[in-house]
Design a protein around this nucleic acid. Structure first.
Length: 248
RNA sequence: AGGACGUAAUGU
């Protein structure tokens, strides 16, 4: 089944979903039993096709055949429900993990947080995040990006700024995507001074992979533009060119 | 190891 799973994943990467399904069925007919990797790969295929019914029936079929879903399988389910904006589905994932005593890992938390953002539940996202930290898991860049985006959309500037403070205090990992997300959040909430501080930090800690790119500059131009500071916006544009970053 | 996760602005 490693051979089959490899092939299914390969077809999935090429977005040849129908062919991936054909090979899964072929494997089944040949009498080769799917394992946990095969299951999450094929569930992801159906999920990417938006076939919620098939995903759930395959999940139940696997369960009755003695398959114990692992965190990867739950992240596939969570992502699908998030994209469908299906809040009940998200609750189902949480319930199943509890019932089967599967401990969520960072990726599962990230996916669930994002899903809660997409279904417009910032409060639940916040408590899930606290639960994650209390369980002793360290958030990564993607966790923090998801939360900042959620707080920004909810216009929860207090929570967003507090979280930024915790990132620095606890030395949680930050990369350029997270910085850009923080900048966009500041742009949306009109936090000009905070944006400038973040932007300076990006330039100072030029630890490769954190220096401003054209998304960062665009965010700054946006901040100055919506604040009516056209001259500052133009300065940013020129600075961008001078630092070797091209406009898109 | 054969499986899962993250960012903006403009224009209609």
């Amino acid at each position: 089944n490693i051979t089959y799973s490899t092939l299914i994943t390969c077809l999935k990467k090429c977005r040849k979903f129908d062919r991936a399904i054909e090979w899964f069925e072929r494997m089944y007919k040949t009498g080769v039993m799917p394992d946990e990797v095969t299951y999450s790969a094929i569930l992801d295929v159906y999920a990417k096709l938006g076939k919620k019914e098939e995903v759930l029936s395959l999940y139940e079929r696997g369960r009755s055949n003695g398959w114990k879903p692992d965190p990867v399988a739950f992240s596939v389910l969570a992502k699908m429900f998030g994209e469908a904006g299906d809040y009940d589905g998200i609750q189902y994932v949480l319930k199943e993990m509890k019932n089967l005593e599967v401990k969520p890992n960072v990726v599962v938390y990230n996916t669930l947080l994002e899903a809660m953002g997409k279904t417009g539940k910032p409060g639940l996202a916040r408590s899930l995040f606290e639960e994650m930290v209390e369980s002793g898991l360290e958030p990564n860049e993607k966790t923090l990006t998801a939360l900042i985006k959620i707080y920004g959309k909810a216009r929860w500037s207090k929570d967003a700024l507090e979280l930024w403070g915790r990132m620095r205090e606890k030395k949680w990992p930050m990369d350029f995507v997270l910085y850009n997300t923080l900048l966009s959040m500041c742009a949306d909430l009109g936090l000009e001074a905070e944006a400038e501080e973040l932007f300076d930090e990006m330039k100072r800690r030029r630890k490769s992979g954190r220096c401003p790119d054209n998304w960062s500059y665009t965010a700054m131009i946006n901040i100055y533009g919506s604040g009516g500071k056209a001259d500052r916006a133009l300065e940013m544009f020129n600075e961008m060119l001078a630092s070797g970053v091209g406009p898109n």
